[in-house]
Design a protein around this nucleic acid. Structure first.
Lengths: 200, 200
DNA sequence: TTTAAATGAATGAATGGCCATTCAGTAATT
DNA sequence: AATTACTGAATGGCCATTCATTCATTTAAA
Protein backbone atom coordinates (compact mmCIF):
# COMPACT_ATOMS: atom_id res chain seq x y z
CA UNK A 1 0.00 0.00 0.00
CA UNK A 2 2.52 2.61 -1.00
CA UNK A 3 2.46 5.69 -3.17
CA UNK A 4 3.28 4.14 -6.48
CA UNK A 5 0.82 1.37 -6.00
CA UNK A 6 -2.11 3.70 -5.52
CA UNK A 7 -0.91 5.98 -8.28
CA UNK A 8 -0.99 3.23 -10.85
CA UNK A 9 -4.26 1.85 -9.55
CA UNK A 10 -5.78 5.24 -10.25
CA UNK A 11 -4.20 5.39 -13.70
CA UNK A 12 -5.62 2.01 -14.60
CA UNK A 13 -9.03 2.89 -13.26
CA UNK A 14 -9.03 6.21 -15.08
CA UNK A 15 -8.04 4.57 -18.34
CA UNK A 16 -10.97 2.22 -17.98
CA UNK A 17 -13.45 4.96 -17.14
CA UNK A 18 -12.20 7.32 -19.83
CA UNK A 19 -12.45 4.51 -22.35
CA UNK A 20 -15.99 3.74 -21.35
CA UNK A 21 -17.47 7.22 -20.94
CA UNK A 22 -15.02 9.60 -22.54
CA UNK A 23 -13.05 12.20 -20.65
CA UNK A 24 -15.80 14.76 -20.24
CA UNK A 25 -18.45 12.32 -19.11
CA UNK A 26 -16.13 10.58 -16.70
CA UNK A 27 -16.71 11.62 -13.10
CA UNK A 28 -13.91 11.80 -10.60
CA UNK A 29 -16.15 9.74 -8.37
CA UNK A 30 -16.37 7.07 -11.08
CA UNK A 31 -12.62 6.82 -11.20
CA UNK A 32 -12.40 6.79 -7.41
CA UNK A 33 -14.94 4.02 -7.17
CA UNK A 34 -13.21 1.99 -9.86
CA UNK A 35 -9.86 2.42 -8.10
CA UNK A 36 -11.45 1.75 -4.73
CA UNK A 37 -10.21 4.96 -3.16
CA UNK A 38 -11.96 8.06 -1.92
CA UNK A 39 -12.57 10.96 -4.27
CA UNK A 40 -10.16 13.11 -2.31
CA UNK A 41 -7.38 10.56 -2.52
CA UNK A 42 -7.11 11.16 -6.22
CA UNK A 43 -6.03 14.72 -5.49
CA UNK A 44 -3.14 13.47 -3.41
CA UNK A 45 -1.69 11.93 -6.54
CA UNK A 46 -2.89 14.24 -9.30
CA UNK A 47 -3.45 17.97 -9.55
CA UNK A 48 -6.73 17.84 -11.41
CA UNK A 49 -8.79 15.83 -13.83
CA UNK A 50 -6.74 16.81 -16.86
CA UNK A 51 -3.60 15.83 -15.06
CA UNK A 52 -4.93 12.29 -14.80
CA UNK A 53 -5.53 12.12 -18.52
CA UNK A 54 -2.12 13.55 -19.33
CA UNK A 55 -0.56 11.01 -17.00
CA UNK A 56 -2.35 8.20 -18.78
CA UNK A 57 -0.81 9.38 -22.02
CA UNK A 58 2.64 9.96 -20.69
CA UNK A 59 2.98 6.78 -18.71
CA UNK A 60 1.00 4.20 -20.61
CA UNK A 61 1.90 5.32 -24.10
CA UNK A 62 5.47 5.64 -22.94
CA UNK A 63 5.58 1.95 -22.09
CA UNK A 64 4.37 0.92 -25.53
CA UNK A 65 6.71 3.27 -27.31
CA UNK A 66 9.70 2.03 -25.37
CA UNK A 67 8.84 -1.56 -26.04
CA UNK A 68 8.44 -1.04 -29.77
CA UNK A 69 11.58 1.02 -30.03
CA UNK A 70 13.47 -1.77 -28.36
CA UNK A 71 12.18 -4.37 -30.80
CA UNK A 72 13.05 -2.14 -33.72
CA UNK A 73 16.59 -1.59 -32.54
CA UNK A 74 17.46 -5.18 -33.35
CA UNK A 75 16.39 -4.99 -36.98
CA UNK A 76 17.93 -3.30 -40.02
CA UNK A 77 15.75 -4.37 -42.94
CA UNK A 78 13.23 -1.56 -43.49
CA UNK A 79 10.61 -4.03 -44.65
CA UNK A 80 10.93 -6.04 -41.47
CA UNK A 81 10.97 -2.85 -39.47
CA UNK A 82 7.57 -1.80 -40.72
CA UNK A 83 6.32 -5.28 -40.03
CA UNK A 84 7.57 -5.13 -36.47
CA UNK A 85 6.09 -1.69 -35.99
CA UNK A 86 2.68 -2.72 -37.24
CA UNK A 87 2.55 -6.04 -35.43
CA UNK A 88 3.71 -4.70 -32.09
CA UNK A 89 1.39 -1.74 -32.31
CA UNK A 90 -1.59 -3.94 -33.10
CA UNK A 91 -0.65 -6.35 -30.33
CA UNK A 92 -0.58 -3.53 -27.82
CA UNK A 93 -3.90 -2.16 -28.97
CA UNK A 94 -5.55 -5.55 -28.88
CA UNK A 95 -4.13 -6.31 -25.47
CA UNK A 96 -5.07 -3.04 -23.82
CA UNK A 97 -8.36 -2.08 -25.38
CA UNK A 98 -9.08 0.63 -22.86
CA UNK A 99 -5.84 2.38 -23.58
CA UNK A 100 -6.44 1.96 -27.29
CA UNK A 101 -9.79 3.67 -26.98
CA UNK A 102 -8.32 6.53 -25.00
CA UNK A 103 -5.48 7.05 -27.45
CA UNK A 104 -7.73 6.91 -30.46
CA UNK A 105 -10.45 9.14 -29.12
CA UNK A 106 -9.12 11.38 -26.38
CA UNK A 107 -5.56 12.06 -27.47
CA UNK A 108 -6.55 14.11 -30.49
CA UNK A 109 -8.99 16.18 -28.47
CA UNK A 110 -6.39 16.89 -25.89
CA UNK A 111 -3.70 17.74 -28.38
CA UNK A 112 -6.06 20.30 -29.75
CA UNK A 113 -7.47 21.68 -26.53
CA UNK A 114 -4.25 21.93 -24.64
CA UNK A 115 -2.12 23.64 -27.20
CA UNK A 116 0.91 23.72 -24.96
CA UNK A 117 0.67 20.00 -24.37
CA UNK A 118 2.41 18.05 -27.04
CA UNK A 119 2.74 14.39 -26.41
CA UNK A 120 6.28 14.24 -27.61
CA UNK A 121 6.59 10.56 -26.96
CA UNK A 122 3.74 10.01 -29.34
CA UNK A 123 5.11 12.30 -32.02
CA UNK A 124 8.46 10.61 -31.75
CA UNK A 125 6.65 7.36 -32.11
CA UNK A 126 4.87 8.20 -35.34
CA UNK A 127 8.03 9.83 -36.62
CA UNK A 128 9.70 6.44 -36.39
CA UNK A 129 7.70 5.40 -39.43
CA UNK A 130 9.01 8.36 -41.35
CA UNK A 131 12.58 7.44 -40.43
CA UNK A 132 12.09 3.86 -41.49
CA UNK A 133 10.83 4.97 -44.87
CA UNK A 134 13.77 7.32 -45.38
CA UNK A 135 16.09 4.49 -44.43
CA UNK A 136 14.44 2.22 -46.97
CA UNK A 137 14.83 4.86 -49.64
CA UNK A 138 18.51 5.23 -48.84
CA UNK A 139 18.89 1.47 -49.14
CA UNK A 140 17.14 1.55 -52.50
CA UNK A 141 14.29 -0.61 -51.34
CA UNK A 142 11.53 2.00 -51.22
CA UNK A 143 10.56 4.29 -54.08
CA UNK A 144 11.99 7.78 -54.03
CA UNK A 145 8.77 9.32 -55.27
CA UNK A 146 7.15 8.48 -51.95
CA UNK A 147 7.06 11.50 -49.65
CA UNK A 148 8.04 10.14 -46.21
CA UNK A 149 6.03 12.77 -44.32
CA UNK A 150 2.85 11.82 -46.13
CA UNK A 151 3.62 8.11 -46.15
CA UNK A 152 4.01 8.22 -42.39
CA UNK A 153 0.50 9.56 -42.07
CA UNK A 154 -0.84 7.01 -44.50
CA UNK A 155 0.76 4.16 -42.64
CA UNK A 156 -0.16 5.36 -39.20
CA UNK A 157 -3.68 6.43 -40.09
CA UNK A 158 -4.30 3.03 -41.61
CA UNK A 159 -2.81 1.33 -38.57
CA UNK A 160 -5.00 3.22 -36.15
CA UNK A 161 -8.14 2.63 -38.10
CA UNK A 162 -7.61 -1.11 -38.50
CA UNK A 163 -6.81 -1.44 -34.81
CA UNK A 164 -10.28 -0.15 -34.08
CA UNK A 165 -11.86 -3.41 -35.22
CA UNK A 166 -11.39 -4.81 -31.73
CA UNK A 167 -13.09 -1.93 -30.01
CA UNK A 168 -15.92 -1.04 -32.30
CA UNK A 169 -16.63 -3.69 -34.83
CA UNK A 170 -19.07 -6.54 -34.71
CA UNK A 171 -16.57 -8.52 -36.72
CA UNK A 172 -13.67 -8.06 -34.35
CA UNK A 173 -12.57 -11.61 -34.94
CA UNK A 174 -9.52 -10.77 -37.00
CA UNK A 175 -6.14 -11.74 -35.63
CA UNK A 176 -3.21 -9.39 -35.30
CA UNK A 177 -1.34 -11.30 -37.98
CA UNK A 178 -4.18 -11.18 -40.44
CA UNK A 179 -4.55 -7.47 -40.10
CA UNK A 180 -0.89 -6.62 -40.07
CA UNK A 181 -0.40 -8.93 -43.05
CA UNK A 182 -3.04 -7.09 -45.03
CA UNK A 183 -1.69 -3.69 -44.06
CA UNK A 184 1.86 -4.57 -45.03
CA UNK A 185 0.80 -6.25 -48.22
CA UNK A 186 -1.04 -3.15 -49.29
CA UNK A 187 1.46 -0.62 -48.03
CA UNK A 188 4.40 -2.43 -49.58
CA UNK A 189 2.99 -3.95 -52.75
CA UNK A 190 -0.37 -2.25 -53.22
CA UNK A 191 -3.63 -3.84 -54.18
CA UNK A 192 -3.26 -4.04 -57.94
CA UNK A 193 -2.65 -7.40 -59.54
CA UNK A 194 1.04 -7.67 -60.50
CA UNK A 195 0.43 -7.53 -64.25
CA UNK A 196 -1.55 -4.32 -63.90
CA UNK A 197 1.22 -2.74 -61.94
CA UNK A 198 3.24 -1.44 -64.87
CA UNK A 199 0.42 1.00 -65.55
CA UNK A 200 1.55 3.30 -62.75
CA UNK B 1 -35.04 35.93 -42.70
CA UNK B 2 -37.05 32.76 -42.38
CA UNK B 3 -36.78 29.48 -40.47
CA UNK B 4 -34.32 27.67 -42.67
CA UNK B 5 -32.02 30.61 -42.79
CA UNK B 6 -31.59 30.79 -39.04
CA UNK B 7 -31.37 27.03 -38.75
CA UNK B 8 -28.40 26.90 -41.07
CA UNK B 9 -26.81 29.94 -39.52
CA UNK B 10 -26.81 28.10 -36.23
CA UNK B 11 -25.42 24.94 -37.83
CA UNK B 12 -22.56 26.87 -39.37
CA UNK B 13 -21.84 28.69 -36.16
CA UNK B 14 -21.95 25.48 -34.16
CA UNK B 15 -19.59 23.75 -36.56
CA UNK B 16 -17.15 26.57 -36.10
CA UNK B 17 -17.41 26.60 -32.32
CA UNK B 18 -17.25 22.82 -32.01
CA UNK B 19 -14.20 22.78 -34.24
CA UNK B 20 -12.48 25.40 -32.15
CA UNK B 21 -13.34 24.28 -28.63
CA UNK B 22 -14.65 20.76 -28.94
CA UNK B 23 -18.21 19.76 -28.18
CA UNK B 24 -17.93 19.66 -24.41
CA UNK B 25 -16.14 22.97 -24.08
CA UNK B 26 -18.45 24.71 -26.47
CA UNK B 27 -21.04 26.85 -24.71
CA UNK B 28 -24.49 27.38 -26.11
CA UNK B 29 -23.86 31.07 -25.58
CA UNK B 30 -20.74 30.80 -27.76
CA UNK B 31 -22.78 29.33 -30.55
CA UNK B 32 -25.52 31.91 -30.06
CA UNK B 33 -23.03 34.74 -30.19
CA UNK B 34 -21.34 33.32 -33.29
CA UNK B 35 -24.71 32.92 -34.99
CA UNK B 36 -25.82 36.35 -33.78
CA UNK B 37 -28.98 35.06 -32.12
CA UNK B 38 -30.10 34.85 -28.52
CA UNK B 39 -29.34 31.76 -26.48
CA UNK B 40 -33.00 30.89 -26.30
CA UNK B 41 -33.45 31.09 -30.06
CA UNK B 42 -31.30 28.02 -30.47
CA UNK B 43 -33.92 26.01 -28.62
CA UNK B 44 -36.54 27.01 -31.14
CA UNK B 45 -34.59 25.11 -33.76
CA UNK B 46 -32.91 22.32 -31.79
CA UNK B 47 -33.95 20.21 -28.83
CA UNK B 48 -30.65 20.34 -26.99
CA UNK B 49 -26.94 20.65 -27.40
CA UNK B 50 -26.46 17.12 -28.68
CA UNK B 51 -29.17 17.67 -31.23
CA UNK B 52 -27.10 20.46 -32.71
CA UNK B 53 -24.08 18.19 -33.07
CA UNK B 54 -26.13 15.40 -34.58
CA UNK B 55 -27.62 17.87 -37.03
CA UNK B 56 -24.16 18.98 -38.06
CA UNK B 57 -23.31 15.38 -38.85
CA UNK B 58 -26.53 14.58 -40.61
CA UNK B 59 -26.80 17.67 -42.72
CA UNK B 60 -23.24 18.66 -43.49
CA UNK B 61 -21.82 15.20 -43.93
CA UNK B 62 -24.86 14.32 -45.95
CA UNK B 63 -24.03 17.01 -48.46
CA UNK B 64 -20.51 15.70 -48.97
CA UNK B 65 -21.62 12.12 -49.26
CA UNK B 66 -24.23 12.96 -51.84
CA UNK B 67 -21.77 14.93 -53.88
CA UNK B 68 -19.18 12.17 -53.91
CA UNK B 69 -21.72 9.49 -54.67
CA UNK B 70 -22.84 11.51 -57.62
CA UNK B 71 -19.31 11.84 -58.99
CA UNK B 72 -18.75 8.13 -58.54
CA UNK B 73 -21.89 7.19 -60.39
CA UNK B 74 -20.35 8.35 -63.66
CA UNK B 75 -17.30 6.11 -63.42
CA UNK B 76 -16.83 2.38 -63.83
CA UNK B 77 -13.07 1.82 -63.59
CA UNK B 78 -12.35 0.85 -59.97
CA UNK B 79 -8.95 2.55 -60.08
CA UNK B 80 -10.52 5.80 -61.16
CA UNK B 81 -13.24 5.36 -58.60
CA UNK B 82 -10.78 5.28 -55.73
CA UNK B 83 -9.08 8.30 -57.19
CA UNK B 84 -12.35 10.19 -57.34
CA UNK B 85 -13.20 9.15 -53.82
CA UNK B 86 -9.88 10.28 -52.39
CA UNK B 87 -9.70 13.51 -54.32
CA UNK B 88 -13.24 14.60 -53.60
CA UNK B 89 -12.93 13.70 -49.96
CA UNK B 90 -9.71 15.65 -49.58
CA UNK B 91 -11.19 18.59 -51.43
CA UNK B 92 -14.13 18.70 -49.07
CA UNK B 93 -11.92 18.47 -46.01
CA UNK B 94 -9.63 21.19 -47.24
CA UNK B 95 -12.50 23.44 -48.16
CA UNK B 96 -14.42 23.11 -44.92
CA UNK B 97 -11.80 22.80 -42.23
CA UNK B 98 -14.23 23.29 -39.39
CA UNK B 99 -16.37 20.44 -40.55
CA UNK B 100 -13.27 18.31 -41.06
CA UNK B 101 -12.21 18.92 -37.49
CA UNK B 102 -15.64 18.05 -36.16
CA UNK B 103 -15.83 14.86 -38.19
CA UNK B 104 -12.35 13.75 -37.25
CA UNK B 105 -12.59 14.53 -33.56
CA UNK B 106 -16.21 14.58 -32.46
CA UNK B 107 -17.84 11.94 -34.65
CA UNK B 108 -16.03 9.03 -33.04
CA UNK B 109 -16.84 10.25 -29.55
CA UNK B 110 -20.46 10.59 -30.44
CA UNK B 111 -20.68 7.23 -32.12
CA UNK B 112 -19.37 5.75 -28.92
CA UNK B 113 -21.35 7.80 -26.43
CA UNK B 114 -24.68 7.64 -28.16
CA UNK B 115 -24.90 3.96 -28.88
CA UNK B 116 -28.24 4.27 -30.53
CA UNK B 117 -26.98 6.95 -32.86
CA UNK B 118 -25.33 5.49 -35.88
CA UNK B 119 -24.48 7.95 -38.56
CA UNK B 120 -25.69 5.74 -41.31
CA UNK B 121 -24.80 8.19 -43.99
CA UNK B 122 -21.24 8.01 -42.82
CA UNK B 123 -21.15 4.22 -42.63
CA UNK B 124 -22.63 4.02 -46.10
CA UNK B 125 -19.95 6.40 -47.18
CA UNK B 126 -17.02 4.37 -45.93
CA UNK B 127 -18.68 1.21 -47.18
CA UNK B 128 -18.44 2.66 -50.67
CA UNK B 129 -14.73 1.94 -50.55
CA UNK B 130 -15.40 -1.66 -49.73
CA UNK B 131 -17.77 -1.94 -52.64
CA UNK B 132 -15.27 -0.40 -55.01
CA UNK B 133 -12.66 -2.91 -53.96
CA UNK B 134 -15.02 -5.85 -54.44
CA UNK B 135 -15.89 -4.49 -57.85
CA UNK B 136 -12.22 -4.29 -58.75
CA UNK B 137 -11.71 -7.86 -57.64
CA UNK B 138 -14.60 -9.03 -59.77
CA UNK B 139 -13.08 -7.21 -62.72
CA UNK B 140 -9.75 -8.90 -62.08
CA UNK B 141 -7.95 -5.66 -61.40
CA UNK B 142 -7.46 -5.94 -57.64
CA UNK B 143 -5.86 -8.89 -55.85
CA UNK B 144 -8.19 -11.46 -54.38
CA UNK B 145 -6.05 -11.88 -51.28
CA UNK B 146 -7.03 -8.40 -50.18
CA UNK B 147 -9.81 -8.50 -47.60
CA UNK B 148 -12.21 -5.70 -48.64
CA UNK B 149 -13.40 -5.06 -45.08
CA UNK B 150 -9.87 -4.47 -43.85
CA UNK B 151 -8.78 -2.67 -46.99
CA UNK B 152 -11.65 -0.25 -46.53
CA UNK B 153 -10.32 0.66 -43.12
CA UNK B 154 -6.80 0.99 -44.41
CA UNK B 155 -7.85 3.29 -47.19
CA UNK B 156 -10.18 5.37 -45.11
CA UNK B 157 -7.91 5.59 -42.09
CA UNK B 158 -5.10 6.75 -44.32
CA UNK B 159 -7.37 9.25 -46.00
CA UNK B 160 -8.54 10.76 -42.73
CA UNK B 161 -5.07 11.04 -41.33
CA UNK B 162 -3.58 12.71 -44.38
CA UNK B 163 -6.45 15.15 -44.53
CA UNK B 164 -5.42 16.36 -41.11
CA UNK B 165 -2.37 18.12 -42.51
CA UNK B 166 -4.49 21.16 -43.20
CA UNK B 167 -5.86 21.39 -39.72
CA UNK B 168 -2.94 20.48 -37.54
CA UNK B 169 0.31 20.50 -39.34
CA UNK B 170 2.84 23.24 -39.65
CA UNK B 171 3.57 21.95 -43.12
CA UNK B 172 0.02 22.14 -44.36
CA UNK B 173 1.23 23.34 -47.72
CA UNK B 174 0.49 20.14 -49.60
CA UNK B 175 -2.05 20.27 -52.38
CA UNK B 176 -4.99 17.93 -52.68
CA UNK B 177 -3.47 16.39 -55.79
CA UNK B 178 -0.12 15.75 -54.18
CA UNK B 179 -1.67 13.99 -51.25
CA UNK B 180 -4.22 12.02 -53.17
CA UNK B 181 -1.49 11.07 -55.64
CA UNK B 182 0.68 9.69 -52.88
CA UNK B 183 -2.18 7.84 -51.27
CA UNK B 184 -3.27 6.20 -54.49
CA UNK B 185 0.25 5.38 -55.50
CA UNK B 186 0.80 3.58 -52.23
CA UNK B 187 -2.59 1.97 -51.98
CA UNK B 188 -2.54 0.73 -55.53
CA UNK B 189 1.12 -0.04 -56.18
CA UNK B 190 2.74 0.01 -52.76
CA UNK B 191 6.00 1.61 -51.80
CA UNK B 192 8.46 -1.06 -52.86
CA UNK B 193 10.57 -0.50 -55.91
CA UNK B 194 9.18 -2.56 -58.80
CA UNK B 195 12.07 -5.00 -58.91
CA UNK B 196 11.67 -5.79 -55.22
CA UNK B 197 8.03 -6.50 -55.69
CA UNK B 198 8.33 -10.14 -56.61
CA UNK B 199 9.47 -10.83 -53.06
CA UNK B 200 5.92 -10.72 -51.75
C1' DT C 1 -57.07 54.10 -44.36
C1' DT C 2 -56.26 53.88 -39.69
C1' DT C 3 -56.27 51.44 -35.46
C1' DA C 4 -56.51 47.52 -32.72
C1' DA C 5 -55.99 42.75 -31.72
C1' DA C 6 -53.71 38.35 -32.56
C1' DT C 7 -50.05 35.48 -33.76
C1' DG C 8 -45.57 33.82 -33.54
C1' DA C 9 -40.62 34.67 -33.41
C1' DA C 10 -36.92 36.11 -30.62
C1' DT C 11 -34.82 37.48 -26.38
C1' DG C 12 -31.84 36.99 -22.26
C1' DA C 13 -32.07 36.90 -17.30
C1' DA C 14 -33.07 33.48 -13.83
C1' DT C 15 -33.15 28.67 -12.39
C1' DG C 16 -31.53 24.38 -10.98
C1' DG C 17 -28.59 20.52 -11.32
C1' DC C 18 -24.26 18.74 -11.75
C1' DC C 19 -19.60 17.76 -10.31
C1' DA C 20 -14.48 19.16 -9.69
C1' DT C 21 -12.21 20.42 -5.95
C1' DT C 22 -11.38 21.34 -1.02
C1' DC C 23 -10.55 20.53 3.75
C1' DA C 24 -11.82 19.34 8.47
C1' DG C 25 -11.81 15.28 10.47
C1' DT C 26 -10.40 10.15 10.99
C1' DA C 27 -7.37 6.30 10.67
C1' DA C 28 -3.00 4.25 10.16
C1' DT C 29 1.90 4.23 10.75
C1' DT C 30 6.15 5.76 12.88
C1' DA D 1 2.39 11.28 20.54
C1' DA D 2 3.40 12.92 16.18
C1' DT D 3 3.31 12.41 11.53
C1' DT D 4 1.46 10.89 7.40
C1' DA D 5 -2.22 8.97 4.51
C1' DC D 6 -6.81 8.83 3.61
C1' DT D 7 -11.75 10.01 3.61
C1' DG D 8 -16.15 11.84 1.84
C1' DA D 9 -19.45 15.42 2.78
C1' DA D 10 -19.81 20.30 1.74
C1' DT D 11 -18.78 24.17 -1.28
C1' DG D 12 -18.96 27.01 -5.15
C1' DG D 13 -18.88 27.84 -9.95
C1' DC D 14 -20.44 26.80 -14.27
C1' DC D 15 -23.79 26.45 -17.92
C1' DA D 16 -27.82 23.96 -20.35
C1' DT D 17 -32.28 24.90 -20.39
C1' DT D 18 -36.57 27.49 -19.44
C1' DC D 19 -40.04 30.95 -19.82
C1' DA D 20 -42.01 35.56 -18.88
C1' DT D 21 -41.57 39.32 -21.63
C1' DT D 22 -40.68 42.07 -25.82
C1' DC D 23 -40.77 42.88 -30.61
C1' DA D 24 -42.40 42.33 -35.46
C1' DT D 25 -45.68 41.05 -38.60
C1' DT D 26 -50.15 39.84 -40.09
C1' DT D 27 -55.11 39.98 -39.89
C1' DA D 28 -59.43 42.09 -38.80
C1' DA D 29 -62.43 45.63 -37.52
C1' DA D 30 -63.94 50.27 -37.63
Amino acid sequence: MKDIHKHSKIITAATKVFAKKGFFNARISDIAKEAKVADGTIYLYFNNKYDILISVFEEEIGKIVEQIKKSLAEETDPRKMLEIFATKHLQSMKKNKNLAEVIQIELRQTNKLIKDYRNNKFSDYTDLVEEIIRLGQKQNIYCLDVEPGIAKRIFFGALEEVSRVWNTSIDGHYTVDEISGQLLKIFLSGILLPEKNAAR
